[in-house]
Simulated assay, not measured.
Amino acid sequence: MKKFLGLTAVASVSFAFAAEAMATEWNVSVWGKRRAFTEHVEKLAELVSEKTDGEFTMNISYGGLSKNRENLDGISIGAFEMAQFCAGYHRDKNRVITVLELPFLGISNLEEEVAVSSAVYNHPAAAEEMAQWNAKLLMTSPMPQYNIVGTGDVRDDLAEFEGMRVRATGGIGEAFKAVGAVPTSVTATEAYQAMESGVVDTVAFAQHAHLSFGTINRADWWTANLNPGTVNCPVVVNIDAYESLSDAEREALDSSVAEALDHYLANYGELLKKWDSVLEEKGVEKVEISEEVLAEFRSTAAEPIRDAWIKDMEAQGLPGQELYDLVQKTLADHRNGS
């Protein structure tokens, strides 16, 4: 009997170790704190765990695994299995998706942002470039058009942008530069301090980031309709980790992306609904830029920056014109319901 019990105990322990070995655990690198910008990542982890009965789990780390500018590097060496990054942090490493950061693309809502991002992510040039970093594009982090907060006198004319120090990355930074502003690409987590210390006069963010990183707390005013563009921030997975998943795990992951994005859109929509009350609560003036100023901004920044981007991409052997046309066609198709 003792021998039987001993064998039973050994078998139980062995089974436990085997079960543990079969479980898959991914580390996910994001930054800041949990906010609207990361809700799809949180939802994805929840869905994947549910679909696999807890056998595939994700540990989401807010800054504990890597700095935000180094997340793509971490993916490339397998330091973690999933990460979020923004194209403007290292434009030379993710040239293809910077088409989505061109100013004044005409995207008007988050659903359109999802549509055009997905189209670009699925382009062979995007997949090929990301593969150089052992990364697979999984889903976007759609954000509304950026607008700026500032202190002191309102800046609602292009002449007042001359010399303005603005925290802005990617194509948005290029747009401000075109009208005489001085963009700086401090990271999101550094923006409040840059504003507090006077390193920048204004900060360009989407609404959630003005809240999460505290820049709205220092603001006297916010531009409601400047809308120069947005940044593109994909969630990527390490290719080796993705390919090592079982068929069931991979299906759980892939099939959860759409639902995770739907959750993100619904959550962000609630934030946008209450944005005006946030401004009122914090005593921030809502500034409407005149259509004449907006037209001048677009004519100065949009076409020259777009044409320069296409020329630069084509010179590097990338299909710049094709990618830009893809964005415009996808936008038109989405609006037509096709």
Rank of each mutant, 00 (worst) to 15 (best):
R298Y: 13
E314G: 03
G78P: 15
N336Q: 15
N227I: 10
F37W: 15
G198E: 07
S185L: 06
V200E: 01
R155E: 06
F85I: 06
M164G: 02
P319N: 00
V287Y: 02
V186C: 04
N122M: 15
C86I: 10
R35H: 13
K136S: 13
W26I: 09
N238F: 11
L253H: 01
Y268H: 01
D92N: 14
R306H: 12
Q84L: 15
F15Q: 02
P228I: 03
G88V: 03
M58S: 02
E281F: 13
N71K: 08
G78Q: 14
E129K: 06
M195Q: 07
M139P: 02
K93S: 09
E174C: 15
W133C: 11
S108P: 05
H208V: 12
T184Y: 05
V287W: 01
Q207A: 15
E129R: 06
T300C: 12
S118D: 10
Q328N: 05
A241T: 06
V48M: 08
A16V: 00
P183D: 02
D254W: 03
A308M: 08
Y62P: 08
E25L: 15
E81A: 14
A188T: 03
S29P: 14
E291V: 15
S277C: 09
S61P: 13
D53M: 15
D325V: 08
S290H: 05
H263A: 07
K136N: 07
L100W: 00
V114R: 03
D333E: 12
L158S: 02
R155L: 12
A9R: 00
C233M: 09
E160N: 11
L5Y: 04
